[in-house]
Design a protein around this nucleic acid. Structure first.
Length: 618
DNA sequence: CCCCCCCC
């Protein structure tokens, strides 16, 4: 029988001496599904005297689980480990390197009579959750919501949870009560959202629903189904929850915005921050075991928290990130429609310009019913939780279906904005994001390095950007052609050899032609380089001659023609470029078109650089 | 397990 390293677990958890090796028995193991690819394994281990359950396998050892090398009751030697403290006082052992000394299938039984590891106050390890919630910015709001979705009843936005719906005679759904139900002293305690982790089994929160999505369907290569999201909020923090398929039927009607619920037995996994700005490292999904009960008592829980980003700081946040914003609607444009590139359907939209005390303005687009129901006629204050940032025009914003919009919220920030705008803001000039760029004209500045880093042009549609670069190389061959003289027809003509040229598009022959340019060039900056194609106007700028002159030179004065190319090299311009990946002979490459080239205005470019430096926050 | 959110 193998000998375990008695007392090892206490040392590992409390002092974590480096180099400590310990022979331990794995009593039990369990898979914790994280974001798809990265499953984690949690172990209950024993050193013969004590057991410890906050033990995780480092992901690089996952294969030992997957090929059943580590099984229940096996004896392992831990060669390397870490002890992480998470959420105040919880200590998690992470096993980094281990070998299996004996398979559990041979050992067959628990070694010794270990009891749960106890730690003194100094060790302060996994005490049952006594966690005090960290202070949290809390904005309770009594507001008149203006947008139709999701249903927010103004009468209920604050205060108790006393609003009832006739539909809601039964308020408990899901499986039986948790074993630790009401009446079981101690176990009935309510946990704080901020203390939830995937590493604990038993918890119950009491939280207000602050946001609720519509039911959506999805269909992709991994399957199809229905889902909805809600956000829960308590004094300690917030968490996003998702209900899939059956959970939609079970919980969608029960969960109402602004009401309070007891929630337990849901799955927790690490949150993908890309898709929400809910301040939690984890998110939950409802499963067959989950229990959600309406809380009937009056409880004083916050209604909504915001983490407002001042408008002038929007450039510090990357495009596509999700932020909260509050501002006064300075301009409310009429409804308009666009055709969705993907859906090919007509979509209603409304553009707003909102401003705040930072002196900056930003464009914000509302879509669909949000756009239709919006009334901006009185320059209201608008607060949006979870709007998405885009880099169109430097920076602009879009209100998503998952965003929460509140018009004239009864919060401090809104009152301050109202007073400021009525006093002075209405007559102020605001800086807009597009005005930063010289010939930038609505596209953001990128270096070639950033173009690669940020995968520009890899998406469905082309990405536009502005850059200052040096003209490093020009391709002389085929840089121009004889084009149809008909206005707006730039088709290449076929030389008939008899003094006539034929346009296949116009189905006509002409005695004359016009020169058109397609110039291939390499541009370079400190971070990289890029092949680009320039057409007529921008090519003329780069070469410093008109196409007609150049065509003349090519035919009559080859030396002059060559010299144009020599002189053009190594000059700097500000380029407006359009990039899109195209697949050509099974090879994909970034096709970049020069939409405009302008000589560098160094005063303005210097200002741009200063702004970039300021954005770095140095 | 979704995560699309549209246009210039």
């Amino acid at each position: 029988m193998a000998t375990l390293t008695a007392g090892a677990l206490g040392k590992m958890v409390k002092d974590s001496p480096p180099g400590l090796q310990a022979v331990l028995q794995v009593i039990n193991l369990k898979k914790i599904a994280a974001n798809g690819a990265n499953d984690r394994y949690r172990l209950l281990v024993s050193d013969g005297e004590a057991t410890y359950s906050h033990v995780m396998l480092a992901t690089q050892l996952n294969t030992m689980m997957e090929n059943n090398e580590i099984d229940a009751l096996c004896v392992i030697r831990v060669n390397r480990y870490l002890c992480n403290t998470i959420q105040q006082d919880k200590r998690i052992l992470i096993l980094l390197d281990l070998e299996v000394l004996r398979k559990g299938s041979e050992v067959k039984e628990k070694i010794g009579n270990p009891t749960q590891l106890k730690l003194d106050a100094a060790g302060s390890a996994p005490a049952p959750q006594q966690d005090q919630p960290p202070p949290v910015q809390e904005t309770s709001c009594r507001a008149a919501p203006a947008l139709a979705r999701p249903p927010l009843n103004p009468a209920r936005i604050a205060g108790g949870n006393n609003a009832t719906s006739p539909m809601q005679s039964s308020n408990s759904f899901g499986a039986k009560r948790p074993q630790a139900g009401p009446g079981t002293p101690g176990s009935d305690r309510v946990h704080k959202i901020a203390t939830l982790t995937p590493y604990q089994n038993r918890w119950r929160i009491r939280a207000r629903v602050t946001q609720k999505s519509n039911i959506r369907t999805w269909s992709n290569s991994r399957g199809e189904g229905r889902l909805f999201n809600v956000n829960f909020l308590d004094e300690s923090g917030e968490i996003r929850a998702t209900g899939f398929n059956d959970a939609v039927d079970k919980f969608y009607e029960l969960l109402e915005v602004n009401k309070v619920y007891y929630v337990s037995r849901c799955s927790l996994k690490t949150a993908n921050k890309q898709y929400s700005n809910v301040k939690n490292d984890y998110e939950m999904s409802f499963n067959n075991d989950s229990v959600i009960e309406k809380c009937e008592e009056e409880v004083d829980l916050p209604c909504m928290t915001f983490d407002f980003v001042p408008i002038n700081e929007m450039e510090k946040h990357p495009a596509k990130s999700i932020v909260d914003v509050i501002g006064v609607v300075k301009v409310c444009n009429d409804l308009s429609t666009v055709i969705g590139r993907q859906s090919q359907k007509e979509i209603t939209k409304r553009d707003l310009q909102i401003v705040d005390q930072s002196g900056s303005a930003i464009n914000m687009t509302l879509w669909g019913s949000d756009a239709q129901s919006f009334d901006g006629s009185s320059h209201p204050v608008i607060a949006v939780k979870g709007a998405s940032l885009s880099d169109f025009g430097g920076r602009s914003m879009s209100v998503l279906a998952s965003s929460q919009t509140i018009v004239n919220p009864d919060i401090r920030e809104a009152h301050m904005l109202r007073g400021w705008y009525d006093r002075e803001g209405a007559n102020m000039d605001f800086s807009t994001f597009k005005s930063d760029g010289m010939s930038g004209g609505g596209t953001s500045w990128k270096t070639f390095g950033q173009v690669v880093q940020e995968n520009l042009g890899q998406g469905e549609k082309a990405d536009w950007f502005t850059t200052k670069a040096t003209l490093m190389h020009l391709k002389k061959d085929n840089c121009m052609y004889q084009a149809c003289p008909t206005e707006n027809c730039n088709k290449k003509l076929v030389d008939q050899g008899n003094g006539m040229w034929r346009c296949e598009k116009c189905q006509r022959e002409f005695p004359n032609y016009k020169w058109r340019m397609i110039l291939q060039a390499t541009l370079s900056d400190f971070s990289g380089h890029q092949w680009v194609t320039s057409f007529q106007e921008s090519a003329e700028t780069l070469l410093g001659v008109k196409a007609d002159e150049l065509g003349d030179m090519r035919q009559n004065n080859e030396a002059a023609f060559d010299q144009v190319f020599q002189q053009a090299l190594f000059k700097d311009y500000v380029f407006k470029l359009r990039a899109k990946v195209e697949v050509y002979n099974e090879e994909s490459r970034l096709k970049t078109v020069c939409v405009a080239a302008t000589p560098v205005d160094y005063t303005q470019y210097g200002k741009h650089l200063v702004e970039e430096i300021q954005k770095m926050g140095l």
